[in-house]
């Protein structure tokens, strides 16, 4: 956990933003290696745009997963499929 005092010392602009945001994507999608994750964590502790970028991407991903309405399947869908395959 980084203290508020330390946070103030963080970079407020990122010169590698495009590359960092690609890394953020790999990390939130669980596609980054342990080494990439550790390296990015070190970077994130020093870079405010990277930290905020990571938090935003993670939040959007969780939002899509948890808050998008799950439609219930129509009541007769399973029966309909079963009937049709039994006729094949």
């Amino acid at each position: 956990m980084v203290s508020e005092a330390e946070k103030i010392q963080k970079k407020i602009s990122c010169e590698h933003k495009a590359d960092c945001m690609k890394m953020v994507q790999l990390i939130v999608d669980g596609q980054a290696s342990d080494e990439q994750i550790n390296q990015f964590k070190l970077n994130m502790d020093k870079c405010l745009p990277c930290e905020k970028g990571y938090e935003l991407e993670k939040c959007i991903k969780e939002t899509m997963k948890l808050r998008l309405e799950k439609k219930a399947i129509p009541l007769n869908l399973i029966d309909c499929i079963k009937q049709k395959i039994n006729m094949l």
Partner: peptide, 10 residues
């Protein structure tokens, strides 16, 4: 983002 409801996300 956290304040948006499901319909807005959809």
């Amino acid at each position: 983002v956290q304040d948006l409801i499901g319909d807005e996300i959809a």
